[in-house]
Design a protein around this nucleic acid. Structure first.
Lengths: 325, 325
DNA sequence: GACGGGCTATAAGGTGGACTTATGGCTAGA
DNA sequence: TCTAGCCATAAGTCCACCTTATAGCCCGTC
C-alpha cells in the first residue's frame, strides 16, 4: 500500500534530481531517503530511478509514478481544505459511474451544467462497461451510477431514468445492407456480421437470447468491450453493431456518418436506472448532481434532437413489437 | 499532512458505521482506530464523526472527506498498476493547465481527442486564472500549460500556439451600446462600465495601460476573477467585458446571445504559448498531449468557425492598429 | 432493577519502522 | 593524486502505532 510520505519523498527526489539534494530540502538524512526509495521499488516491483554519480533520473516507470504522485498530493491538499470548510455550500467530490453510451448521451451536458451551477463540486465521471460500473457501485466506490437493471443491493436507492431504443448501426458507406432501406427486420439483423461486447455482458446475452427465441443464430465476428474501438471497427465495415443512439451522438463531429436502423419487427428497448447511495451516506453535492443527471436525461428525451430516447413513464402503454432487454 | 493509512481507516469506519466493526474488518484493535480518528480530527480541526452507543455517523465535514478519500484511494491503486506496467504504451496521468477562456476554446475538443486516441492517458485539466496556472507550472505541478507570456523559468520549454483577438462583449439585449454598431472604438470602450479581472491580473493591467496611454480612464464597475460569474454579470447588463472569443463560444448552447465588438482602432491581441516541462521530465504521454493541444489549436484557427483566432506565424506582418497585450 | 452485550475513549506498555550517525565505494574534475 | 560529490549499507536510537486492559455509557431483555 503506497504511503503519502513515500510519494512526497519520491516527488521531491525526481524534482531535485538527486537523493542528497532532496534530503537537504526535506531536512531528512540521505540514507533514510535511500531506504525509503528502495522500499518503494520493492513494493512496485520495478526500478523507479537510474542512479549515477551525478544524481538520479527517473525510469519510465518512475516517470509514470511521478506524475501520478504529484496529482495525488495535490488532491490531498484539496481534501484537507474541503474537510475544513464551513458546511452549507454545495461542494466536494462526487463520483458518477456512466456506461460509455450514456457518457456520449449525457456526459458533456452534465459536466457543463455542474460546472456552471456548482463550481465547487468536483465531478468525477467514471466511464466503463455496465458490469464494471455496477461492481464499483457495489463496492461503494461511486456516489451515483446509471445502470440497466434493478437487481442491486438494498442499501442503494434506485429510480427510473429513461428508456433507450437499440438500433442496428452501420456506417453510411456500408455494403452490409441495402442502401435504400431505413429499417431492418430482426431476421435480417441476425444474418449480418455483428460486433458485440463479450459473452459475459448483459446486452450481448439478451440480444443472443432474443435471436434464439426466434430460431435465429448470431453471426458475431468480433467481441469488443471498448465502445470507441468497437465503433472504429464498425466504421471499417468489419461488421454491424446493436447499440443505443448514444453510441453515434458525437460521431458527426468526427466526420463519420452512420445509418441507425430501427428493428421494425422487434423494437429492442433498454431501461436506464439511476442508482445512488442510501440517504445516510449521500452527500448534499451528490444529491444535487443526481438532480442534474435526471434533468439532463429529461431534456434529452424532450428535445427530440435524437431519436431512440423515451420517457420512462410514457412506455406504460406497450407496443406489440417492443422487446425489453 | 494526511496519510493514506488514516484515509483507509476513515473510509472503512464510515462504511462499517462503527469503530468496533471497522476494527474487526481491518484486523486492527479498536483503540488504535479511536486514536487515529482523534488524530485525524485534530489535524482537520473539525469533528468528522457523530459518536453514539449504536456506532458512528459522519458529520458534514466527515462526509466531504469520505468522498474525497475514496477517490484518492482509488487513484493510489491506479498509480501502482501504472507504475508496474511494462513501458512503451502511451499512458499515465497528464496534467494540463488552461485558463478559463482556453478551456472553452480548446478543452472539449482536446478531451475528446485524447480519450479516443489514447484511452490509457488520464487527462487532468486544471482550469484557473493565468496567474494561478503559471504558479502551478512554476511549482512543477503541471506537465503542460497555456499561458500568455514568455517570462518563465529556463527549465521549461515554451513554444507559440496561436494569437487571439480581444473583443468587447455585451449581451445581445444590452442597452450599453448602440444596437446597429458592429464595432467599437477604444474611446467608446473606455466609456463603458466594465467588468474585468482584479487589478493584479495581467489582462486587466494591460488594458488599463493602453487606455492610459491614450489619455482614457477605465470605468471598472466590478472586478471578478471567475469567468462564469463574470459572464453571468455581463449578461445581466451590469457592464461590458473585454475577452477573447473563447469566453462566449459555448454560450449559444445556453440560450444566451452575445455581441462581440472588435475594437476598430486598436485591435487588442494576445499571444498564447504552450509551456511544457523540460525533456528530461516530460513523459511520453505528456509529449503526446502537447501534440494534440497544438493540433487542436491549429484546427481552431483553420476552420474559421469563430473569429478572433489567428495563426501565430501569420501575424508577422503587423497591422497598424494592432496592439499586442 | 439487574444483567449482558454493544458501543467508544483513555491509559499504559511493547515493538518495529523511520529516522540518525558512521562508513564505504564509485565517479568526475582539477 | 586529491577532493568533492554522489548513492548504498550497517548499526543504533527513538517514537508512532499498535497491543491489552479498563472504564463509562447506552440499550434491550428477563
Amino acid at each position: 500500500m503506497l504511503d503519502t510520505r513515500q510519494l512526497r519523498y519520491f516527488v521531491q527526489i525526481v524534482e531535485s534530481g538527486s537523493l542528497s539534494k532532496a534530503s537537504r530540502e526535506l531536512l531528512i538524512a540521505q540514507p533514510a531517503l535511500s531506504q525509503q526509495i528502495a522500499k518503494l521499488e520493492d513494493e512496485v516491483g520495478k526500478p523507479l530511478l537510474h542512479r549515477s554519480s551525478k544524481g538520479v533520473t527517473p525510469t519510465e516507470n518512475g516517470l509514470a509514478l511521478y506524475h501520478h504522485a504529484r496529482f495525488m498530493l495535490r488532491q490531498l491538499d484539496q481534501a484537507l481544505s474541503i474537510a475544513r470548510s464551513d458546511t452549507g455550500a454545495v461542494q466536494g467530490m462526487v463520483s458518477v459511474g456512466l456506461p460509455a453510451t450514456t457518457v456520449s448521451a449525457l456526459g458533456l451536458h452534465l459536466v457543463r451544467k455542474i460546472r456552471q451551477r456548482y463550481p465547487s463540486i468536483l465531478l468525477n465521471v467514471v466511464e466503463g462497461m455496465s458490469g464494471h460500473i455496477s461492481h464499483l457501485m457495489r463496492l461503494g466506490q461511486l456516489d451515483l451510477a446509471v445502470l440497466f437493471s434493478t437487481d442491486m443491493s438494498n442499501e442503494l436507492t434506485v429510480e427510473p431514468l429513461l428508456i433507450e431504443e437499440l438500433f442496428v448501426l452501420i456506417p453510411k458507406h456500408s455494403k452490409l445492407f441495402a442502401a435504400d432501406r431505413d429499417s431492418i427486420t430482426i431476421a435480417e439483423a441476425a444474418e449480418l456480421p455483428l460486433i458485440l461486447p463479450t459473452g459475459s455482458h448483459g446486452l450481448r446475452q439478451r440480444i443472443a437470447a432474443e435471436f434464439e427465441n426466434r430460431g435465429l443464430g448470431t453471426n458475431v465476428v468480433a467481441e469488443i468491450d471498448s465502445l470507441s474501438l468497437l465503433m472504429n471497427c464498425v466504421y471499417d465495415d468489419i461488421g454491424a453493431t446493436i447499440k443505443p443512439m448514444g453510441a453515434v451522438m458525437h460521431e458527426g463531429a468526427r466526420g463519420r456518418d452512420w445509418r441507425c436502423l430501427p428493428i421494425s419487427d422487434a423494437r429492442f428497448r433498454r431501461r436506464n436506472f439511476l442508482y445512488s447511495l442510501g440517504p445516510e451516506r449521500l452527500s448534499t453535492a451528490a444529491a444535487v448532481v443526481a438532480g442534474v443527471v435526471k434533468e439532463t436525461a429529461f431534456e434529452l428525451v424532450e428535445n427530440h434532437e435524437w431519436s431512440g430516447f423515451e420517457d420512462y413513464e410514457v412506455l406504460k402503454t406497450v407496443e406489440a413489437t417492443s422487446v425489453m432487454i
